[in-house]
Design a protein around this nucleic acid. Structure first.
Length: 154
DNA sequence: GCCAACGTTGGC
DNA sequence: GCCAACGTTGGC
């Protein structure tokens, strides 16, 4: 099993929005970055992911979700009315993909970016590196467990 | 709103 | 293939 971190702007799609979906499940669409897409293609059913709120008052990790469907073509790329429309992605050769994720839990508190940056054993987490803009990234087992231990504090 | 750090585009 | 111009992300 592998671990991931997925970013979303809460005013666009928050962890509460995911929780409200039927079966608490939704597709993670709109990824338009090759590196992020390639990571998404590596995701396996049953993998766990942190839900990260970005571009908001308190950026940070707010909860957990499970990957419930592996990468399949992102249909929003074919929708001319979508902000994610990409004429270069065709049904024959899809350029962009999405996965399905299912809500698992909301942490008792927000693990803020500030706090993650202070933690000393997360060097391998791309999120805390300066200038990082990856919206989907792998999390090592060591970092995953370290972050989970933070949740239990307070 | 600012702006650093990227990623992408397109002329050459 | 280089690289300047441009667009986007996302913390602050």
């Amino acid at each position: 099993m592998n671990y991931w971190l997925l970013k979303s702007e809460p005013n666009v799609f928050s962890i509460d929005d995911l929780k409200k979906q039927p079966q608490k499940t939704d597709h993670w669409d709109g990824v338009r970055n090759y590196q992020a897409r390639n990571f998404m293609k590596e995701m396996k059913k049953g993998d766990l992911a942190f839900f990260y709120h970005s571009n908001c008052d308190e950026p940070g990790i707010v909860g957990l979700m499970t990957v419930t469907k592996e990468a399949y073509p992102d249909h929003t790329a074919w929708d001319k009315k979508s902000q994610y429309y990409d004429p270069k992605s065709t049904k024959e050769t899809p350029r962009w993909y999405m996965v399905n994720v299912t809500y698992k839990k909301t942490f008792s508190r927000n693990i803020s970016l500030k706090e993650l940056k202070l933690k000393k054993d997360l060097e391998d987490l791309p999120l805390i590196r300066k200038g990082n803009r990856l919206s989907i990234m792998p999390v090592s087992k060591k970092s995953w467990e370290s972050i989970l231990s933070l949740v239990k504090k307070n």
